[in-house]
Write a protein that binds this DNA or RNA. Structure first.
Length: 559
RNA sequence: UGGGGCGUCGUCAAGCGGUAAGACACCAGGUUUUGGUCCUGGCAUCCGGGGGUUCGAAUCCUCCCGCCCCAGCCA
């Protein structure tokens, strides 16, 4: 079950294996090329795992390259968060940290060469003129009147562009391809635009910046990338990617391969929409545990190994798809089940007085830390006459097949004693405020010498020896599988789940919780997996629910 | 309607001419000091649809249908 032994195959790995077998490549080099203009999300995690995973599997390398060709949107803050996220996922780019902006000189030289070869020209058309001349999808385009300028004039003009002699948008460098090409991207695409804007790395050195199409393939070539893996929407760009490579003829010829990006049920993945959730304070920042951002799932408590496992299990193909959140949660549970220690906590307390138990005694029981891992050992849990149990674990009038606590029934308190419910104490409004039970001293530790069976085992916390916790119970941010399905004139925010976060009022956990460091993941038995949140202080312990346990009883009740 | 892609179980996804892997979900049982975990069994006579080629097709040919991407000086 370990992730390392569970590697599957996919069409990209097949291509790589063929290239290795044929001798086309002896070393595989991939790259993860984020634009530093936003936070990474789990969709990026798929790409990161793919690119770094392939490099690892085939003894190659994977570069981290910031695709920073548009200074208007990019910031250093983002490059830091991106590096942090990649590291958290467990990948290491070693010495291979690059920036497209490092290649601006080389890119410029190549552009000059292209002008000399008659493959590029400076165009003075306006934005509107370009748009009109590009033609419609079915009609042909019209050539720019500047298309046939002489090499000398183009060289002179391009130099002036670089030297800042033109205003933003006044002119640009275009590739000379074919205005009648059926693929509109090949109708003399823009290579350089003028932006008198400081760049986060090159400062004011440049006022002309290369476009994605002109920069990406060449950056791949400079880094000797063998397989340039990107998402489906770039498929139509591939002919252009190859055209530039053919025009420039760099030593290295990378190959672009496209795959379908990840979509997940009950969430949205677009940067624009995630930005809106943050900007409008619908969530509490980029690292809100309900966000699909890497920062969000990290704070939520998802283990990076589970994310990697998920990434491997979803497979890879070219057909667009939406993966069920169930699979991600399954990966998280599977990972945590084996690693997370168990503790007890009562989320919604109901007081129980064990009437035949001495008043001034505190007994300590040994509780198993993790039934899946013997080496995890045991811990001491204090037991007293007054305890809390979960409200849901008691029913005055038991439903069918309910085998927890109800009048006259005996249940096991996990790791402690068997108790039987004798009395229900209610307030003037008829609300149950307290239960009176009796325990059987012979059942110490949770088993009876006579071997009698109890059907239910419930968790509990001492009413006097505990630590109050603020438990943040997270659910999906949206209440429907596809948040983008909304009515006319509506918005994806119409599908927000009003119960995506519930904060407990008076939850109590066993004292051992106090020792756990921030970021520690564990299970509250029978409740779910939790993590110590960064909002925890010496006065207040805050825990986030990572994921619930599967609940067969809840399913039974629905029937 | 121009160009580029894609259509296999509820959701992902193998399969590449020899008679539909696997995972998640779901259903039914068993074990159990977590109604958790674990274990056992079930779950596409059928591969978007129609024709054709072939002893034999999800895999080849053909026509049709559906969905996605492309008209930023974004990536």
């Amino acid at each position: 079950m370990s992730e390392a032994t569970k590697e599957t195959t996919n069409f990209i790995k097949t291509i790589i294996e063929e290239d290795l077998a044929s001798g086309k490549h002896s070393k595989i080099i991939t790259r993860f090329p984020p634009e530093p203009n936003g936070y990474l999300h789990i969709g990026h995690a798929k790409s990161i795992c793919l690119n770094f995973g392939i490099a690892k599997q085939y003894n190659g390398t994977c570069h981290l390259r910031f695709d920073d060709t548009n200074p208007e949107k990019e910031e250093t803050e983002y490059v830091e968060s991106i590096m942090n996220d990649v590291k958290w996922l467990g990948f290491d780019w070693g010495e291979n940290l690059f920036y497209a902006s490092s290649y601006f000189d080389q890119l410029y030289e190549w552009a000059v060469q292209m002008i000399k070869d008659g493959l590029a020209f400076v165009c003075h058309q306006t934005l509107e003129e370009i748009r009109e001349c590009r033609g419609t999808a079915k009609g042909k385009g019209i050539e720019s009147p500047y298309r046939n300028r002489s090499v000398e004039e183009n060289l002179d003009l391009f130099e002036k562009m670089k030297n800042g002699e033109f205003k933003d948008g006044e002119c640009m460098l275009r590739a000379k391809i074919d205005m009648a090409h059926p693929n509109v991207l090949l109708r003399d695409p823009v290579m350089y635009r003028i932006k008198h804007v400081s760049h986060h790395r090159t400062g004011d050195k440049w006022c002309i910046y290369p476009t994605y199409d002109y920069a990406h393939g060449q950056s791949d070539a400079i880094e000797n990338i063998t397989h340039s893996i990107c998402t489906l929407e770039f498929e139509a760009h591939r002919p252009l990617y190859e055209w530039f490579l053919e025009a420039i003829k760099p030593l290295s010829r990378p190959r672009q391969i496209e795959f379908a990006r990840l979509n997940l049920t009950y969430t949205v993945m677009s940067k624009r929409l995630l930005m809106k959730l943050v900007k409008e304070n619908i969530v509490n920042g980029w690292d809100d545990p309900r966000m699909p951002t890497i920062a969000g799932i990290r704070r939520r408590g998802y283990p990076p190994e589970a994310v990697r496992d998920f990434s491997e299990r979803i497979g890879l193909a070219k057909r667009e798809s939406t993966v069920s959140l169930d699979l991600l949660e399954h990966c998280v549970r599977e990972n945590l089940n084996k690693k997370a220690r168990r503790y007890m906590a009562v989320i919604n307390p109901l007081k129980v007085v064990v009437t035949n138990y001495p008043e001034d005694i505190v007994e300590e029981f040994d509780a198993v830390n993790n039934p899946e891992d013997e080496t995890a050992g045991t811990r001491k849990v204090p037991f007293t006459r007054e305890i809390y149990i979960e409200k849901d674990d008691f029913m005055e009038e038991p439903a069918k097949k309910f085998h927890r606590l109800y009048p006259g029934n005996e249940v096991r308190l996990r790791a402690a004693y068997y108790i039987t419910c004798n009395d229900i104490i209610k307030d003037e409004n008829g609300n149950i405020v307290e239960l009176h039970c009796t325990y059987d001293p012979e059942t110490k530790g949770g088993s009876s010498p006579d071997g009698r069976k109890v059907k239910g085992t419930i968790h509990w916390v001492s009413a006097s020896h505990n630590v109050p916790v603020e438990a943040r119970l997270y659910d999906t941010l949206f209440k429907v599988e596809n948040p983008m399905e909304f009515g006319e004139g509506g918005s994806f925010t119409d599908n927000l789940n009003p119960d995506s976060l519930k904060v407990t009022e008076n939850a109590y956990a066993e004292v051992n919780i106090k020792e756990l460091p921030q970021g520690e993941r564990f299970q509250f038995e029978r409740v779910g997996y939790f993590v110590i949140d960064s909002d925890t202080t010496s006065e207040k312990t805050v825990v986030n629910r990572i994921v619930t346990l599967k609940d067969k009883w809840a399913r039974l009740q629905k029937k």
